[in-house]
Simulated scan of single mutants.
Amino acid sequence: MAFLPRLRIMLGLLEGTKSGKIAMSLKELSERTGLPPSLLREHLRFLQGEGLVKLIDEDVVLEVTRIDLAIKALEAGLDVERVSNLLDWREFEHVTAQCLDMNQYEVIEHLIFKCQRRRYEVDVVGLRKPLILCIDCKHWSYNRGARLRSAVKEHVERTRSLSKCMLKIPKLANRLSGWNKCFIIPTLVTLRESFMIVYEAVPIVPIRKLNSFLQELEAYLESILHFKVEIDHEDKSTNIVGEPYPFPFKWPEK
C-alpha cells in the first residue's frame, strides 16, 4: 500500500528537521524510515509533486514549513500524538488549533489581551456557536498534583477575564457578531498523557484524545466547568451569569 510509506517519510522528515534544518540526505531519510533508496525516491517524487519536498541530487529539501508538513501528515492519517511529540511548543499549539479547525471551530491562536490593566495570553481559542473553548497547551505531565492545581486555577481565572473583556478584544469581538450569549469552557490540552481527566470540573485532554473530545463534547457538558456569558453588542458589554459551574446543555436547533 503506497499510503503507508508516504506516512513514514513524512514522519521521518519531521524527525530529521526537529533541530531546525530544512534538508537531509537520502541516506539519512532511508535509515529513519527503513525504506530502500529506490522505493524512497519513488514516493519522494510523489511528495515533490504535492509541493512538500524537492529532490536535489542526494538531498531532500523541505518546500513547506514543518507546521504545514505536520498538518499534511495529520490529514493523511498520521497519529496526532506522534506528530505532536516532534513539535516545539509553538508548533504544538498550532496542531491543537488545526484539530479545532478540522472540527468546524473558528480558531484564534496566541490571543493576547488586557483586562482590568492586567495582560493575559491564551494559546488557542475555538469558537462554534454558542461554545467558546479557551485552551491552554501544556507539554508537561499532569501527574504532579501541585503543578496541575496551579495550572487549572490560573487558567480558570484567565478564562474569567476573557469572559469579562471579550468585546474589548478586536480579534474576538469581530467573530461574535450575532451572538447574544455564549458558554466559555476552560480546557487544558497536554502532550504526554494517555487518558482524559476532569480536574475540579476542568477537562484535561491529551492531544491524542482531542479529536474525540471535540466530537463527543456534548456528552461532557453536564460535568465540566463553564462561564455562561450574556453579550450586549449595543453597550459593548458582557455579563457573567452566576459562577462557573457544570451545566445541563441542549444544542440549538439547526
Rank of each mutant, 00 (worst) to 15 (best):
M1A: 13
P5Y: 08
L7N: 10
R8N: 13
L13E: 10
L14K: 11
G20P: 07
K21W: 02
I22D: 13
M24N: 07
S25C: 04
E28V: 11
E28W: 06
G34W: 02
P36H: 03
L39N: 03
L39H: 02
E42F: 12
H43G: 01
R45W: 01
R45Y: 05
L47A: 06
Q48V: 03
V61I: 15
L62S: 11
V64M: 09
A70F: 12
I71N: 05
A73S: 14
L74R: 14
E75V: 13
A76H: 08
L78P: 04
D79R: 11
D79C: 06
V80W: 06
V80I: 04
N85C: 04
L86P: 07
L86A: 10
L87I: 07
L87S: 08
W89A: 08
F92G: 07
F92T: 04
E93D: 09
H94G: 01
V95R: 00
C99V: 15
D101H: 13
D101V: 03
N103G: 05
Y105I: 02
V107I: 11
I108S: 04
K114F: 05
K114G: 08
K114V: 03
Q116I: 04
R117A: 11
R118M: 10
Y120L: 08
V122S: 03
V122P: 03
L127I: 15
K129M: 08
I132Y: 06
L133E: 04
D136R: 10
C137D: 06
Y142W: 06
N143V: 10
R144C: 00
R147Q: 11
R147H: 05
H155M: 07
H155A: 07
E157F: 12
R158G: 01
T159W: 09
R160V: 06
S161T: 00
S163R: 11
M166K: 09
L167T: 02
I169T: 03
P170H: 02
K171Y: 06
K171A: 14
N174P: 01
R175M: 13
N180V: 07
C182W: 00
I184D: 02
T190C: 04
T190V: 12
V198W: 14
A201F: 14
P206V: 08
R208M: 04
S212P: 00
F213H: 03
Q215W: 00
A219N: 14
L221W: 10
E222A: 11
I224M: 15
L225T: 14
E230T: 01
I231F: 00
H233C: 02
E234S: 09
T238W: 04
N239D: 05
V241G: 04
V241M: 14
Y245I: 10
F247K: 12
P248N: 12
K250C: 02
K254W: 09
